[in-house]
Design a binder for these strands. Structure first.
Length: 296
DNA sequence: AGGCAGGTGGCCA
DNA sequence: TGGCCACCTGCC
């Protein structure tokens, strides 16, 4: 790795938003995306999304700074979109029922600046199909191996995640060599499904939430939880409310809903938190993991 | 050293 | 519907 940060190349990223070290970490490395890692020597996060390889760090005045492996202008624009929620976070949070919900209010206060990423749709689908029954560390490893094995080299020794067209030309055996385990078949079959339906994924992702989710459930390896993650992180459908074990614990304990099943909790979430339920979910998720004292 | 992990799909009552 | 279980792999 020759990729030492060249401090002269650091540039400010204009964001009407303040991250804290904690909310930046939670945003980039809290389970929404799996291709960011902290580089201690640089005091920065290095990450890959789409065809962009960048580094991001907190600037002296609390702003955000970045540098890119190449084509800084394109990276700046892409990062602006990726972190685009920052521009409207305040008004969005204000539409959440924090005034009447002390649990939510505490979660919002605990991680000021946390946002939902706007990730490329295809790779969000891929990452979350790979996420089932895996911890964050392992999901990151799988993504890394997939990228190395069949993703485009976008900078020296840096690979993007393969797109679905490429995946359709990848054998299940090759996928298994990337430590996907039984998920290899899911990826393989979803790739075939998508290959037979050009534009399907993009079109479906813009449908109203309920229809979009129903459609995504047709994909092998995509159940309720993964569908919600794809819609929330990859299609800006903020109504999506993924229910995983963490949220299940939070809602059971802090909202007095023990014994409720994931599907029931998903309905509760959308009813209670409203059109931006997914945003509330992310804060509750961060809070639950924090208090559970582990990072995945 | 093994249990278990941010789930899904298939089968049975 | 509701409940149960197999499924790969490697981390803690």
């Amino acid at each position: 790795m020759s990729a030492d940060p060249q401090s002269s190349d650091w540039q400010r990223l204009e964001l009407v938003h303040q991250f804290t070290a904690a909310s930046l970490r939670e945003t980039l490395d809290g389970g929404q995306a799996f291709r960011w890692h902290w580089v201690p020597a640089a005091g920065a996060w290095r990450g890959i999304f789409g065809r962009h390889a960048v580094q991001v760090r907190l600037g002296a005045e609390g702003g955000l700074e970045f540098c890119a492996a190449s084509d800084t202008a394109a990276a700046r624009a892409a990062l602006g979109g990726y972190l685009g929620m920052a521009a409207e976070l305040g008004p969005l949070l204000d539409r959440l029922p924090h005034r009447s919900d002390p649990v939510l209010a505490a979660a919002l206060a605990a991680c000021p600046g946390l946002i939902l990423l706007r990730q490329p749709l295809g790779e969000t689908l891929l990452a979350f199909i790979c996420s089932s029954t895996k911890q964050i560390v392992q999901i990151k490893q799988i993504c890394e191996r997939l990228a190395t094995a069949c993703g485009e080299e976008i900078a020296p020794e840096v690979h993007a995640l393969p797109d679905w067209g490429r995946l359709a030309r990848t054998s299940e055996r090759e996928l298994r060599e990337c430590a996907l385990g039984f998920r290899a078949r899911y990826v393989r079959e979803t790739a075939e499904f998508l290959a037979a339906r050009p534009g399907w994924l993009e079109r479906v992702s813009t449908l109203p939430y309920a229809e979009a989710k129903t459609a995504l459930l047709e994909l092998p390896g995509v159940g309720a939880k993964v569908a919600d993650c794809v819609l929330l992180f990859g299609a800006q459908q903020l109504e999506a409310f993924p229910v995983d074990v963490w949220i299940l614990k939070t809602l059971a304990r802090r909202y007095g809903l023990p014994g409720w099943k994931p599907g029931q909790l998903a309905q509760f979430g959308r009813a209670h938190f409203g059109a931006l339920a997914g945003l509330a979910q992310q804060y509750l998720f961060a809070q639950e993991r924090r208090t559970a004292g582990r990072a995945g």
